[in-house]
């Protein structure tokens, strides 16, 4: 057939696009930087009450002060460690239970109703209990973060496994794959795109709950900076902490996407074409 003759080099070009970051990401900086500059200018002209809404220059000054004194590093480290432990625990538990309920209808009937009922409870409602059980220090905070991470990961994994194309699974059966081989060679790669999305939403909720945990009582962490700024009337410090959350969350999410991108070059999706 003549189709064999048209050997355009599609694949190499694709790989390049996947691994070399293009300067196009700078485009994403236009909006936040532009807004900051506009804010700075209008603040200079006195259009805002600069005491409550400090301009970017004051926020960066506060950030710089915290950085130089070494305080910032302490707070960032504390927050990141809590997120890391909470995210790790929540993601592992969510993955295991999601895989169980996704691949066995008996397990789904047995476990899923209970887990869905637990999910319906606002996670912050557990805080008093966690503090009674685990104390006011790290354990209760990590438990709260893990709980927040658990549900999106659990739901994502369960849904992804249940939605794997039956026809593709049948290919595995026709080639006599064992249960374990089926999981490794068919199910795992098939759910990977959904799994990464689930981990990303889990990570987002992890940051949400670390703030909740730190606001409720901590002596360090970015959440503590927020409370401290409120109590001492330092809005610049509050905004500095918020800025840190934005940057940390974005960077970690980006790392997660970047780290998993080589695994997903095969995808034939809409995003690739626009």
């Amino acid at each position: 057939m003549s189709e064999a003759g048209t050997l355009e080099k599609i694949a190499p070009a694709d790989r390049q696009r996947a691994f070399v970051p293009s300067p196009r990401w700078l485009f994403g900086l236009v909006l936040p930087v532009g807004a900051a500059v506009l804010y700075e200018i209008t603040a200079r002209f006195g259009l805002f009450e600069a005491r409550l809404l400090p301009p970017p220059s004051r926020v960066f000054a506060a950030l710089w002060e915290l950085a130089v004194s070494g305080e910032l590093l302490t707070h960032v480290t504390a927050t990141l460690l809590r997120v890391a432990f909470g995210f790790g625990l929540g993601a592992i538990a969510g993955t295991l239970l999601g895989a169980l309920t996704g691949s066995s209808s008996a397990a789904r009937r047995f476990l899923d109703p209970t887990l869905q009922a637990l999910r319906a409870i606002p996670s912050l409602a557990w805080v008093p209990l966690f503090i009674l059980w685990l104390g006011i220090f790290e354990s209760s905070k990590i438990a709260l973060i893990a709980l927040g991470v658990f549900f999106p990961v659990y739901l994502g994994v369960m849904g992804a496994i249940a939605n794997v194309d039956r026809k593709i699974v049948e290919v595995g059966r026709a080639f006599r794959l064992s249960r374990w081989q089926l999981a490794r060679r068919i199910l795992l790669p098939a759910i990977l795109p959904d799994y990464i999305v689930a981990l990303r939403s889990g990570l987002g909720l992890g940051f949400m709950f670390v703030v909740a945990a730190e606001i409720m009582g901590a002596s360090e962490g970015l959440g503590y900076l927020l409370v401290d700024g409120q109590q001492l009337g330092k809005p610049a410090q509050i905004l500095a902490a918020i800025l840190c959350f934005a940057v940390l969350g974005k960077v970690l999410d980006w790392l997660l996407v970047l780290g998993t991108k080589p695994l997903l070059t095969w995808q034939d999706s809409f995003a690739r074409t626009v």
Binding site: I168, E170, V171, R173, A174, F175, R176, A190, W266
Partner: peptide, 26 residues
Amino acid sequence: PHPDVGIVFQEPRLLPWLTVAQNIAF
């Protein structure tokens, strides 16, 4: 399913995460 019996379905049912060569070697 038996090693002496192969099957081709109505649709190709290739595994999208494997290259053509990896699919054939599956």
